[in-house]
Design a protein around this nucleic acid. Structure first.
Length: 485
DNA sequence: TGAAATGTTGGGGCG
DNA sequence: ACGCCCCAACATTTC
């Protein structure tokens, strides 16, 4: 009953597991298994020493890779770990492993695409193929476009087109039953020899992501509509990190969620639709990135290219370290610094604060998020920042300016989010938690929080800076001036 | 996936 | 009893 090797296209293939740290529904792995007799999964880590630094992002990647190694082992496969620049390591591993082809996930940002082109050429020179497969999105490129053939630039029609498309939304692939992998001894670095991996890593990656998804769909998703906007509660799926690293696939997420909808009450179905809408926001921004790659370098809407941003290392530093004097902003930025994750509502608030209260370029915020967030994903990160800055597709109108006090009162009414991340404010009564500077001297003493000493005074006056922003955006080309008298 | 400014309405206090 | 004012509550417009 054994298939004869003759049916296979290749004798041996490397599967580069970038942004696909899983064995279930792994398109590159699946195709490699179809096409080659033997497959060798490879991960490539940049800079060996970097991975011993204890940032949440690196911890997560280590955990996900350790989990991946275990899952592969159960399928009879090893995992080859390469340390260095993929531009060198991927062609080199193909040579060392004598692979006829390399399979990997297609990515959509211009810089990585250029690098992939170089890798493809390097492989080709030795007569090897690079196969890039669609994996991290439901639809890529121009698969979903308007009748005119133009890509969508507005979310709602895009979502309607995606959900109403004649093309079937791709379903998860089965898990390969068995992987034929030759022994890797001597040709790869054992995981536990790589600095940082020698410690026992916390749970992460594919196994944890699946558990998290099941738990979320079994209960919390039903209240998603009400809970997801409250950063003090655990009302979101928290699957952004596994999704961005490919520890879980978007197809698995989508179809498991659709299945949960089948037997849900009416209210819960609305919540589930909202959750699916969030997945489609991600699709939307991937599609924007692929079709309008200039968004990575600046505003989607060119008329805002001439906006004059301030430069202030001090204000930027106050923002990143959570010392702005606005409790909801500081809580969010400290959550980010500590956990490598920030609640989505809070992301909007801090982004509005950076761009419209501090008048700092949204691209500075984008870069910071990209460095610190575990779930950093170029399409969503860029899309989100451009949305807030008002420079993007289907963006928030530029005159929509979040008031950090009102946002705090509205979405963290009891101050539980603030208290969780800003210990100085823990004893401040709820009615002052978002405006501690309004406390009397007595109140400040009894809350053990003297504003200006234990907790910063607001570094800017929101009402004033709002006015400045309106003026700045009104004349994007010109220098900000006061209104003529 | 705002917020502030401005406009309108209606109830209650009051002379 | 009535008009007037105040202002909260809500609606609309503007940024």
């Amino acid at each position: 009953m054994r298939k004869t090797p003759v049916e296979k296209k290749y004798r041996r293939a490397v599967v580069w597991m970038r942004r696909a740290l899983r064995v279930r529904d792994n398109v590159a792995l699946w195709h490699a298994v179809q096409d080659a007799i033997e497959v060798i999964p490879v991960v490539c880590l940049r800079g060996g020493n970097a991975y011993q630094a204890e940032t949440p992002r690196r911890r997560y990647i280590r955990a996900a890779i350790a989990d991946l190694e275990g899952n592969l082992r159960r399928l009879g496969s090893g995992l080859a770990v390469r340390v260095g620049d993929p531009l060198r390591e991927i062609p080199a591993s193909a040579v060392e492993f004598e692979a006829d082809a390399v399979y990997a996930v297609n990515v959509y940002d211009p810089a990585t695409q250029r690098r992939d082109g170089k890798i493809a050429r390097a492989l080709q020179q030795e007569g090897r193929q690079l196969h890039l497969v669609k994996d991290c999105v439901l639809f890529e490129g121009k698969e979903i476009v308007a009748a005119s053939g133009e890509p969508y630039r507005v979310y709602t029609p895009y979502r309607n087109a995606l959900l109403g498309s004649a093309q079937e939304i791709p379903r998860p692939l089965p898990i390969p039953v068995h992987l034929a992998t030759p022994p890797l001894r001597g040709k790869t670095v054992p995981l536990d020899r790589i600095r940082g991996f020698e410690r026992t890593v916390e749970e992460g990656g594919e196994s944890a992501a699946l558990r998290r998804l099941r738990r979320f769909l079994a209960g919390p998703v039903a209240a998603y509509a009400q809970e997801r906007d409250l950063p003090g509660r655990d009302g979101t799926s928290r699957l952004s990190a596994p999704l961005s690293h490919g520890a879980i696939s978007v197809r698995t997420l989508y179809w498991h969620t659709v299945a949960a909808k089948e037997h849900a009450e009416k209210q819960a179905r609305k919540s589930i639709d909202l959750f699916i809408s969030e997945l489609i926001w991600r699709e939307f921004y991937y599609q924007i990135l692929a079709n309008y790659p200039h968004v990575v370098g600046g505003p989607f809407r060119k008329e805002f290219a001439s906006l004059r941003w301030r430069h202030s290392g001090r204000d930027f530093e106050a923002w990143t370290s959570g010392e702005t004097g606005y409790p909801i902003v500081d809580a969010a930025m400290r959550q980010l610094a500590g956990e490598g994750w920030m609640h989505n509502r809070a992301r909007m608030i801090v982004a509005s604060f950076l761009t419209k209260d501090l008048h700092l370029n949204w691209q500075e915020g984008e870069r910071h998020f990209a460095e610190v967030l575990i779930d950093a994903d170029i399409a969503s990160n860029n899309g989100g920042w451009q949305w807030t800055a008002g420079t993007g597709t289907d963006a928030s109108p530029w005159f929509r300016i979040f008031n950090p006090v009102l946002q705090g009162k509205k979405f963290d009414p009891d101050g539980s989010y603030v208290r969780a991340y800003v210990p100085e404010l823990r004893r401040v009564p709820a009615r002052f938690i978002h405006t501690p500077w309004e406390m009397s001297a007595d109140d400040q003493r009894s809350a053990r929080c003297v504003v200006g000493r234990n907790y910063p005074s607001p570094i800017v006056d929101h009402a004033v800076e709002r006015g400045v922003t309106l003026e700045l955006y009104r004349h994007p080309g010109g220098v900000a001036t006061k209104k003529p008298v």
